[in-house]
Simulated assay, not measured.
Amino acid sequence: MHLIHISPKTKGKLIFNHQESSPAHFSGGKKEDEFLLTINLNGSESQEMVINGVSHQFEPYGLIPLLSGQIFSFEKPELITSWQYSRNFYCLTDSYFEISCLGMLFHGYSGNLFLRLDEDHREKLRVLQQMFIEEFDTVDTTQTDMLQMLVKRLVIIVTRLAKEQYLSGKVYEEEKFDLIRQFNLLVDQNYSKEHQVQYYASKLNKTPKTLTRIFTQYGYSPPSAMIQERIIMEAKRLFYYTSLSAKEIAYELGFTDAGHFSRFFKNATQQNPSDLRKLQN
């Protein structure tokens, strides 16, 4: 099942995928799909999932939100239910930062959020799946509003799970967590031009040392590593989905010296850029 809804007012897009055997739209790497945010729900069997070239075990009834621009695929896509939406379909204001499209699931945490569902949450998601299917069939003037409400409900459920499973035992301080979110958002907007922590720290009126301390408090990678991870993510997307040369990709990502980019890429991935391109041929 592959259902699409376009908001008449904003032209925002919502895609609901349920047990599709050949979901080409899952990859998330094509430029025109870069704006889509995704929440994926696995079925009753464990399977391999590849994210940005790295293999992960996706547990039964597991759930994972993914950023736009991430490249991903599933061993058994026919078991997957996914929700993909653009920011102009669903994005609450900053006062609701935890559950906005700029919130915890997509800009508030470093790394991949693999979440576990107990029986209660499995039932909640099962009911929600059915509500989405029914609402896609109800074409009237309130359809967009209803679908946005369902997306909000989904995001709230997933955000609560993420806080419980990834912030459990940590003192949650809204101001500090919002700082992390703002940092991640700034990196997402500027990684192709700005590679130094000092730039982002100054934008946030903090010192690099203060940022590092706050990130460490929540168990995050250092800010410098997070900038590096975002650059590598985009580099891989460009290698996988474009015919740009390594030199052209280096320029796209703000490197004036192709040799510097090659060393940067190899240090981060243990691969030469040329080797990665060969794997795609």
Rank of each mutant, 00 (worst) to 15 (best):
T269Q: 06
A268M: 02
F255E: 09
K266E: 04
L276Q: 05
I231S: 07
G259P: 11
L244N: 07
I231M: 04
E248H: 15
E248Q: 14
G254R: 05
A258D: 04
S274V: 07
E252I: 01
D257H: 06
P273A: 02
I231Y: 06
Q271P: 00
N267Q: 15
Y240K: 10
P273C: 03
K266L: 03
S262M: 03
E234R: 03
A258S: 05
P273W: 00
I232D: 04
R263I: 05
A235M: 09
I249H: 03
H260T: 14
D257E: 09
L244A: 14
L238S: 06
T256Q: 11
A268L: 07
E234G: 14
Y240W: 14
G259F: 02
N267F: 06
F261N: 00
Y240G: 11
F239V: 04
N267W: 10
I249Q: 02
H260C: 07
T256S: 15
D257T: 03
N272F: 07
G259K: 15
G259D: 04
A246S: 15
F265A: 00
E234A: 10
L238F: 03
L276V: 10
A258W: 09
K236A: 08
R263M: 07
T269R: 01
R263D: 03
K247C: 08
S262W: 02
S245W: 01
S274D: 05
L244S: 05
E234K: 12
H260K: 09
K247Q: 05
I232H: 03
Y251R: 14
A250E: 11
K236C: 05
T242V: 12
M233S: 15
F255D: 01
G259E: 08
D257W: 01
R230Y: 14
R237H: 07
I249E: 06
S243W: 15
I231F: 07
L253T: 11
F261E: 04
H260S: 10
Q271W: 07
F255K: 00
N267S: 12
Q271R: 06
S274E: 11
M233E: 13
F264D: 11
A235Y: 09
A258K: 08
T242F: 12
Y241L: 11
A268R: 11
I232Q: 06
G254K: 09
A250I: 12
F261C: 01
F239R: 06
D257R: 08
N272W: 12
E252Q: 15
R230V: 09
L276G: 02
P273L: 01
A258C: 07
F265C: 01
F255M: 10
M233C: 15
S243T: 13
R230E: 11
